[in-house]
């Protein structure tokens, strides 16, 4: 998988739903269109629900990767202004 330039990193390990999405959404709002957010999380449900939510907001999900036994990395590119 190709590496991309990440503009902002968000660590929400230990955070559960729906605050995983609340924090990810707020972080996306601070980006400009075209910028990329990388989310590090360990709540299994969120690894599934955050990419879906980001697609619904109109953004592009670049990567969903399980990096070890407990953690996922999700990369999202902002496509629309909030």
């Amino acid at each position: 998988m190709q590496d991309v330039n990440v503009d902002k990193k968000l660590n929400i390990k230990g955070v559960v739903c729906p605050y995983t999405l609340v924090k990810s959404k707020l972080a996306m709002e601070e980006l400009k269109v075209g910028q990329i957010l990388e989310i590090l999380l360990d709540y299994p449900e969120a690894a599934d629900s955050i990419p879906k939510a980001m697609l619904n907001y109109g953004h592009t999900v670049l990567k969903v990767e399980k990096i070890n036994l407990t953690d996922w990395i999700i990369q999202v590119r902002k496509e629309v202004e909030d």
């Binding site: 999405l21 609340v22 959404k25 939510a53």
Partner: peptide, 15 residues
Amino acid sequence: LQRYSRHIILPEVGG
């Protein structure tokens, strides 16, 4: 964040 979470995740509201 907790109190307004259902607002914040709405695309029309957000932070």
